[in-house]
């Protein structure tokens, strides 16, 4: 083992090193509380990178959900608030309407957005609120310990569907982003996934498109992100990524459901 003692390191070396990667300004230096293998931390990072790249941190306001990301406001280094369960799009509406030149985004899980907050997201989209919605779909209620959500896959066992979700009595998985894409007020509605590095990069580009759509005042933008929940899926973190690919993707295909003609920043591709 070749161990360099500190006094042996020429001081000038560090100064001359090129910084190729560091924590984005839009993230605080707090360690997150997320479980091993959870996608939330990486998604936070992607959002923060986009906010830095667009140079919007000082006039961006984030709205955190109820759910695992309830403390998102601690991790983003920007002005933020904590909404009641499902109400983030309404709260974001209130903020955006009085601060129309600011960038406002909500960060919501599938229980928060697609279940209890169904009405709030539907009508924010209907009105074409100029907000960005980051919709993290892991098919379960994570914070409360893995109960069935509207997004839970058919047959999927959860603590509140122990025999597996039966669509005939418990409903079919909800495709909320496709629903929103039918609404004229929505400028950008896509689904991405976190199951591989390549897909994660595509997720970041979609987040950038979504914020750009807001900057251009085109309407509501939403990026649904298929995310891993190893803890509540009862699988290893690496296997959780395969679970997204093999189980989630067939039900929730990635794709662009609505991309406004006016969206200017298309050169980034998908």
């Amino acid at each position: 083992m070749n161990i360099l003692l500190e006094h042996e390191t020429p001081a000038t070396d560090l100064d001359q090193m090129e910084i190729v990667y560091q924590r984005p300004d839009a993230l605080t230096d707090l360690a997150t509380h997320y479980c091993p293998g959870c996608s939330h931390g990486v998604i936070h990072h992607l959002i923060a990178e986009v906010i830095d790249e667009l140079g919007i941190r000082s006039h961006t306001i984030g709205v955190a959900p109820v759910g695992c990301a309830v403390f998102a406001y601690k991790y983003f280094n920007l002005d933020s608030c904590e909404a009641a369960h499902g109400r983030a799009p309404a709260m974001a509406t209130g903020i955006k309407r009085v601060l129309p030149d600011h960038i406002v985004f909500t960060y919501q899980g599938d229980g928060d957005l697609a279940s209890i907050g169904g009405n709030e997201i539907l009508h924010a989209a209907l009105r074409g609120e100029r907000i960005t919605v980051i919709f993290v779909n892991n098919a379960v209620y994570g914070m409360t310990g893995g109960q069935m959500a509207p997004t839970t896959l058919a047959g999927m066992k959860t603590t509140s569907s122990p025999a597996g979700r039966n669509p005939l009595t418990q409903g079919y998985p909800l495709h909320l982003t496709e629903m929103l894409a039918t609404m004229p007020g929505v400028a950008y509605a896509v689904r991405r996934s976190m199951h591989s590095v390549a897909e994660t990069r595509k997720t970041k580009k979609a987040i950038r498109h979504a914020f750009t759509a807001q900057q251009q005042g085109l309407g509501l933008s939403i990026v649904e992100i298929l995310a891993a929940c190893p803890t509540n899926w009862h699988v290893e973190p690496a296997d959780a990524l395969d679970y997204i690919r093999d189980r989630m993707l067939p039900e929730y295909p990635v794709g662009d459901f609505k991309v406004s003609e006016g969206l200017g920043d298309r050169r980034l591709g998908d």
Binding site: V63, A83, R87, A90, T93, G94, N119, L122, H123
Partner: peptide
């Protein structure tokens, strides 16, 4: 703004008040 419900209305008030 006419909200979609009283629940939304008070949460819009909450958001605006935060600014």
């Amino acid at each position: 703004l006419q909200a979609e419900s009283e629940i939304a209305a008070i949460n819009m008030v909450y958001g605006a008040a935060c600014t």
